[in-house]
């Protein structure tokens, strides 16, 4: 048993997967046509925005030793509710408030079920996942809800920053890498929740809860309140991502984001967040989300059959979990 924390181990624990991403990114740039083009980079960033935003709070769920399966359903349902309320009232503010309110409510219910009723997180969030998915279909009548108020579309589509990216070889017009609001929302979440997990009592208490719940309780941490806060935040952030997605799609879609919860959890675990709790950093989440997104993007560009993409994603997840197991064995537990 190596008692000394080697420099390499410290580096690898926090930034190892970012390094893996960097290598992957360089390989894709060299080997995959059009990968580095401005259009593709735009698409890549946009495709990871939703996963990345939700992964920020999933980091807290996982770090506390639990997880939340209801996020995909919350994304869809919050979008539908927002669309319906905007159409009904004509107010964008009311619509967004309704969507966020729904997310917060679902999160609060999850938190109460887990903390107060003592129901296992798998079962509690599996139940709310289905309930909320069902409610989304019920209120929308199973169809997508188009939004008439175009002012709302700004949220998901506005180009906030345009980075010059050379000129088009054919038209000789300047090209730009457009950064839209969903990407900025995701970046803001990376910053905010990264700060919360590593620099605040809330974050450290979450890690202690996941590392040893009873020890955390006896050390004076109110673990029930903490769990409720974590799940409420998760619901709120999933709803926010759902509203942004709804704006991006210009409609509330009850079918969207099925299986998103597993994508988010796989990304976190791939990046190095421990499934058993107590270990997790924002750098893990960023790396996991980017690796997943890049692999997906490269497979699309290389015309990999979509059936094979499922197989590949499963294999990557399996590899990630094996790494988690090996790490645990490393700590001799």
């Amino acid at each position: 048993m190596d008692k000394n924390v080697s420099k390499f181990r410290v580096f690898w624990d926090s930034a190892g997967m970012l390094l893996v991403f960097a290598v992957l990114f360089i390989l894709c740039s060299l080997r995959v046509d059009h990968f580095l083009s401005a259009k593709n980079m735009e698409g890549l960033l946009l495709s990871v925005a939703t996963t990345g935003t939700i992964a920020c709070t999933m980091l807290f769920c996982l770090a506390s030793g639990a997880f939340d399966l209801s996020v995909g359903s919350v994304v869809a349902c919050a979008g539908v509710v927002t669309a319906l309320v905007i159409n009904r009232t004509g107010s964008i503010t009311l619509g967004i408030a309704a969507g966020l309110g729904l997310g917060l409510l679902v999160g609060l219910v999850n938190g109460l079920l887990i903390a107060k009723a003592g129901i296992n997180a798998l079962i509690a969030t599996l139940a709310t996942m289905q309930i909320v998915r069902g409610l989304g279909y019920i209120v929308s009548g199973g169809k997508s809800v188009g939004i008439v108020n175009e002012g709302f579309f700004v949220l998901g589509n506005k180009v906030v920053i345009a980075i010059p990216a050379g000129t088009n070889p054919f038209s000789h017009q300047p090209e730009y890498l457009n950064i839209t609001t969903p990407v900025l929302v995701c970046l803001a979440c990376f910053g905010l929740f990264g700060f919360l997990i590593s620099r605040t009592t809330f974050g450290r208490n979450t890690l202690a809860l996941g590392g040893n719940a009873e020890a955390a309780r006896l050390a004076g941490i109110s673990i029930d309140r903490l769990k409720i806060m974590i799940f409420s935040l998760q619901g709120l952030v999933a709803a926010a991502a759902g509203i942004v997605l709804c704006s991006q799609l210009t409609s509330g879609q009850p079918k969207t984001s099925e299986g998103l919860e597993l994508e988010v959890i796989s990304a976190c675990v791939l990046g190095g967040v421990s499934l058993t709790g107590g270990v997790g950093k924002m750098s893990h989440v960023v790396a996991g989300v980017l690796i997943m997104g890049t692999v997906q993007n490269a497979m699309n560009l290389s015309n990999v059959d979509s059936f094979w993409q499922y197989v590949a994603r499963g294999l990557i997840l399996l590899a990630a979990v094996s790494v988690d197991r090996l790490k645990q064995r490393g700590t001799g537990r």
């Binding site: 890690l207 202690a208 040893n212 009873e214 020890a215 955390a216 107590g278 270990v279 700590t331 537990r333």
Partner: peptide
């Protein structure tokens, strides 16, 4: 079981 949080550091 009740005292330490094993995966966290001594300082933590």
């Amino acid at each position: 079981r009740d005292g330490i949080v094993p995966v966290r550091s001594v300082a933590e």
